Simulated scan of single mutants.
Amino acid sequence: MSSTSSSGVRAEQIWLDGRLMKWDEGHVHLMTHALHYGLGVFEGIRAYKTHDGRLAVFRLREHVRRLLDSAHIIMLKIPYTEDELFDACVNLLRAQKDLFANGAYLRPVAFMGDGAMGLGAVNPTRTAVTAWDWGAYLGDKGIKEGIRAKVSSYTRMHVNVNMVRGKITGQYVNSILAKREAVLAGYDEAILLDISGFVAEASGENIFQVNKKGIIKTPPLSGPILDGITRDTVLHILRDSGRTVEEVTFTRDALYITNEIFLCGTAAEITPVREVDNRQVADGKPGPITRYVQDMYFRIVRGQEPRYADWLTYI
C-alpha cells in the first residue's frame, strides 16, 4: 500500500516523460525553468466509482485537449499526442486500479524543464501524470450545506494580462492570494471580479446564480474566466432539462439578492454558496436548482445517465 499524504492515498507510480516509475523517483532539477518563472500547464481530472462498481474517468478526452490547447497558447511544445496523453492517464490508473477502486484525482502537468535560464530560454518540455485520492475540495459539509464566500480585493486578471483560455500554472498565484485572503478572514472561498467590477469566477471554480425570477445566469466566455469543463457539463445538464441559462455579466450585489448560488469545478464538483460577504443567500440553504444539478452531476459521473455515457472512460 502506498503511503498517504494530506490529500489521502497517493499513487504508487507516476507517469513521467513517457514511462511509469515509482512515485518517489519522479524528480525534477532545482533549475527547472517552470519553478522559477511559472511556465507550465496542468489539468485536474476525476475518476469515479460507478454504480456497477467499475472505475470511470469523467470527460478525459476534453481535459487532454484543453491541456494541449493551454500549451499551444503559451508556446510550450508537448512531445506527446492527444492519444498518447489519453493513454498515459488510463494506463496510470489501470496499473494501480485496486488502489483507486473508490475514485481518484488525476493531475497531468507539462512544464519547461531545466537547461538555460532567463525569460527568453526555450528548454525541453517535461510531461507528467500523477494521481491521488482527493475528497470534496471545499469539504463534504460544503457540498451538503453550502459554503461562505467573500468577494476578493484581488481582481481576476484582464484578458490582455493573462491568457484566460489556458490553464497555466503561474497564473494561479492570483487565485492563491485571493483564496488565502478569504480563508484568513474566516471564509471558505473567494469570488473574484473582473477589471470592470463584474463577477468573474471563484479562485478555482466557475460560478452560477439563480435570481428571484428563476433566471439562471453565469459569466460569459467573453470575460476573463476559464472555459471550465464542469461549467460546460452544468450548461448541458440545465439546457437538456429544458431550463434556460443566460451567459451574461452581473454585479456583486446581484449575488447578494439572488435566490441560489453554486460553484462548479472538477475539484469542487457542485458546491452551493450559502453566504456572500456576510449576506445570507435566500434562506441560507442549497436551492432546488442547485440540488438538481448536484444530483444529475453525480448520477452522470457514476454512470447512471445513459445519454451522457460518452463522457465516461472506463478503466
Rank of each mutant, 00 (worst) to 15 (best):
T249N: 14
V164W: 09
W311R: 10
T313S: 13
L263T: 06
M21Q: 14
K77W: 06
E12L: 08
R302K: 10
D69V: 12
A282S: 14
S3L: 15
D253F: 11
L238E: 06
L20D: 02
I261N: 01
E246C: 11
D98L: 11
T233N: 03
M163F: 13
E246L: 14
V161T: 15
R239E: 15
F208P: 00
M296L: 06
Q96C: 10
P79F: 00
L177R: 12
A121P: 05
R165G: 10
H29K: 13
V90I: 13
R231S: 06
L55A: 03
N102Y: 12
L35H: 06
D133L: 15
I315M: 12
V276I: 13
N259T: 12
E43T: 07
L238W: 00
S203A: 13
R252F: 05
H158C: 04
K144F: 03
S241A: 14
K213S: 10
I176P: 02
A101E: 13
I195T: 12
H72P: 05
G40A: 06
M117I: 14
G115R: 06
A56L: 02
T125Y: 01
K49W: 08
G40N: 02
R148V: 05
A254S: 14
V109T: 08
M296Q: 11
H72Y: 15
I143V: 13
V301I: 02
M157C: 13
Q304V: 04
L193Q: 05
R46S: 07
D240Q: 08
G284P: 03
